[in-house]
């Protein structure tokens, strides 16, 4: 899916937990999420923590769209 969309000319940022899978399927811009069942907010943490994490990682994804890369790149996240 990533490749089909990028091949059509879209700038695709892939947000996922399993970076090796993302690398294998050929995503070029990758932002890690925290898990499979809850990619962007751990239900065992308070709502504010979940929001902070989600807001941060979506921000990284937006910045990734605006960043030129020369190879498959995993963008660093802080929280």
């Amino acid at each position: 899916m990533v490749k089909a969309l990028e091949r059509a000319g879209f700038n695709v940022v892939h947000m996922c937990n399993l970076i090796p899978v993302s690398m294998t399927v050929g995503a070029n811009r990758i932002v890690p999420t925290i898990s499979i069942p809850y990619p962007l907010g751990d239900p065992n943490t308070p709502k504010e923590e979940q929001w902070k994490l989600r807001y941060h990682r979506v921000g990284v994804a937006l910045d990734a769209i605006a960043t030129d890369v020369t190879e498959q790149t995993v963008f660093k996240v802080r929280i």
Binding site: K3, N11, G26, N28, I65, A66, D68, E71
Partner: peptide, 18 residues
Amino acid sequence: EKDLVPIAPAIDLKDAVI
């Protein structure tokens, strides 16, 4: 062998329709 697609160029977020 891995089959990669060309990397899309960066987009100025002011023009980004997401």
